[in-house]
Design a protein around this nucleic acid. Structure first.
Lengths: 193, 193, 193, 193
DNA sequence: AGCTAATCGAGACGGTACGTCCCGTCTTAGC
DNA sequence: GCTAAGACGGGACGTACCGTCTCGATTAGCT
């Protein structure tokens, strides 16, 4: 383990300014309209400072996702013992976030970016961001053992269906159309008697 | 009504060459790597000939989708009376198409393009391409009346969940991982006794 | 011989605007301070329009020299039959031009540029510009035959000495110090009795 | 008078490494291609060490000239009492140095640098380097009093003509063309009977 | 058959952004 | 306080495409 490299240390303030600028500009400009040059000038930073640390604009966004700079919704799925209630709450929170146009644009931009960058795709889908899918899978597995899960489909498929339904709404719909939370929950959860 | 304008008629061969070039290049270059200039040179066509007839590269792709130049899967959902069999077949066909890397790349590019262009989004999601979702909704509504649909969720939500699950797999997964067709069908269809 | 290439013809007005901008900016900025980007914006032209036709900024300047866009002094050496008078006049004209600070800076910039570009060096020294040396050699050869040339040194060496003396003054002297025209003439011409 | 300041003393080895690197790189890269960054890495030195002691790359070159790091010719003009012999020898030595391509490139680079930097211009022309012009003037003045100088032109003008002829050859000629030493001497010196 | 007019491939145009190189300054730890 | 190292904000480089604008050469329908 080497203690410190020689030379000036990386500027944390520049790093943060760049990431904040990226997140601020993405909804406004869309992914393809977002340029490194714009991010640099918005952040008050030289272009080289960006290129020194990130290979692409997607990579900047990936780091933003991993650092939680895309606020607005909780990826956490509660576990109250009642699957129906937990899913309803989780979807409602997600829905509320996606009802906000800025956040909608941000997430669309992220999805586009993720298509063209493996690191961002991992960051977005696997680790935490968009649907918090792994956490959801875990919750559904728990529900399987307690008999609250409908049918016999694997928790992974159920989770992907729920998240996919939200993703579909996000990408396919122009207007801000909400998902039908109740129906989605009913799809997965064993109705309580 | 004027049947034909004076002057030289639009060249059908140029039109087709452009669309074929676009579809051929999209998987290779990705949406952002695809340029009008490249399409023009690939098609052996002047740039102006493209700009004369299409407002953007997304518009070219939209026309390609509408003309069925993106081969490889049938958007048709059969109606044999047996929902389980029909869905299984439809998903299997879709899955086979998406197992081919070239087609996968093509569809990813299309999804990206659709995010930034309303016309293409309509062409892709509503009219026919990706999931043929309206046809699916129709089939599920029919199944509801004949009691083959599980639970009480609306056909639209069910359709979006199925299509969303496929979309999620397309976008979120790096490797060519298949969807679990059986589980997806089980999610929606009332199991036969 | 092909009559015309296909495609839009080169814009003469852009070509002239670029060359005029280069000549206007060179004295003000010096050769190393002169940038392609500045020339382009001064000329109201895209950078690519410059790079399409010239490989370097020196090449632009070379074309300017060849087209006579660097006004201010006559390279012509008169031949009145009186070498002493002819040389005195030629040097006086040259001196007057070089007394003007703008022209001085221009010529300094040209000399610098010529060091790093073969084409410009030819344009500057051999064809016409700075000293009109070939014309001077010719005049001196004529004088040799009519016995007006002092000593036996070759006309080429004499010409280079005269031009060199001017060049030396141009490069080595900060302030606008004139050459001593009389002494230079005396160096070369047989004094009239 | 304080003999030494507190703190670490300036590194003489770094100073020499920088100047040697500059002189080594100048012929290879030309003046505009020579960068501080390249000099620093060639010298194995931090950039700041250069900027701390020199204001510009011309200043480094000026110091090189003053320290005699540009080897290859003697600026000294002998005084044997025989002007013709002394000039012939001086020009021959100069010519030999300038016949070497590396030295030629070096001197061209120096001349370019001198155009854009007053300090270097002084160092190059007035103090010692290129032509040792002041020494030459002195020698010619001596010759005037002893009647060895041709005509009545001022020694300064004669010196500038000789040096200018060499300078002209250096700048204007692509190939390594020699000056005609005999003719140049004849131009200035009273022929011995 | 000639005229008119919109098309075609080609490619130059004024621009914007790219990703790189270097500027001159600043900030590290080490001697 | 100097050193090597190297990050910083900035500016220019030369390239790739953008979408527009000529070019001369077709090629259709209408006189």
């Amino acid at each position: 383990m080497r203690s410190t490299r020689p030379g000036r240390a990386r500027s944390e303030s520049a790093r943060l300014a760049i990431m904040h600028a990226a997140v601020r500009l993405l909804p406004e400009l869309g992914f393809s309209g977002l340029t490194i040059e714009r991010i640099a000038s918005e952040a008050g930073v030289g272009k080289q400072t960006i290129y020194r640390w990130w290979p692409s604009k997607s990579a900047i966004l990936a780091e933003c996702v991993l650092e939680g700079l895309t606020p607005g919704f909780s990826p956490v799925v509660a576990n109250s013992g009642d699957l129906e209630a937990d899913l309803t709450e989780w979807l409602a929170v997600l829905q509320t976030a996606l009802d906000e146009p800025g956040f909608r644009s941000l997430m669309r931009g992220m999805v586009v970016a993720a298509v063209e960058d493996d690191a961002l795709r991992s960051a977005l889908y696997e680790n935490l961001a968009l649907p918090s899918e792994p956490l959801l899978v875990e919750r559904l597995e728990e529900a399987r053992t307690s008999g609250q899960l409908r049918g016999s489909a694997s928790p992974r498929v159920l989770a992907e269906s729920l998240v996919g339904a939200v993703l579909y709404r996000l990408l396919a719909t122009a207007a801000d159309q909400s998902v039908r939370v109740d129906d989605l929950v009913e799809l997965v959860a064993q109705p309580r008697r």
